[in-house]
């Protein structure tokens, strides 16, 4: 018997996804296949859904980098490039689909980051932060922002996902 870590449903041994909530029940490294190639409609909506490896991308590459996430505690810089929208969260066992940027290497769990916590996106020249209904909330410059409401970001703003502090560095327009 495998107990789903997400919904506690009892699945049969050998199950790979929870039959009740669809959560992934096995830990594997190769989950890249979860991404779906963009079709025409998605392109029109300007939602790029190609696989993202923002975490691994070398800063300063030739790509169109429009912003950088600066993790204040650990000092890492995560460039935002190649697409206009990034969901932030953490990957955990039993999660079938992952956020674009996985913050778990930066103590996301200990800091109370939800699996799908918030989204950073670029629209026209505006950079936007939106909480996705996370458990512990998202704070912008110390003030909690309501879920599912877009907030404009300025260069140097500090966002807090749960207790994980991230400074947003933007490319000068």
């Amino acid at each position: 018997m495998i107990v789903c870590p997400n919904c506690r449903h009892n699945n049969m041994n050998g199950a790979m996804f929870c039959s009740e909530c669809g959560a992934h029940l096995m830990t594997t490294d190769n989950l890249v296949t979860q991404n779906i190639a963009p079709d025409q409609q998605d392109m029109e909506e300007d939602i790029s859904i190609r696989p993202v490896t923002g975490v691994h991308r070398v800063a300063g590459s030739k790509l169109d980098t429009w912003g950088t996430l600066h993790l204040l505690e650990t000092g890492q810089m995560l460039p935002l490039s190649d697409r206009n929208e990034f969901t932030l969260g953490r990957i955990s066992d039993g999660q079938p689909i992952m956020p674009d940027i996985d913050l778990s290497p930066y103590h996301a769990y200990a800091n109370g980051v939800s699996r799908l916590h918030a989204v950073v996106k670029r629209r026209d020249e505006q950079i936007i932060l939106m909480d996705l209904g996370s458990s512990n909330g998202t704070y912008l410059n110390g003030k909690r922002i309501p879920p599912n409401m877009e907030q404009f970001l300025r260069h140097g703003d500090v966002a807090m996902l749960g207790k994980l502090k991230i400074q947003i560095l933007l490319k000068p327009a």
Binding site: I36, T87, P96, I97, L116
Partner: peptide
Amino acid sequence: RHLKNLAAHLLSQGEQS
């Protein structure tokens, strides 16, 4: 509940609509 679970998965796969 199943539909909402489905929606959550779809959302994270970029299938907004």
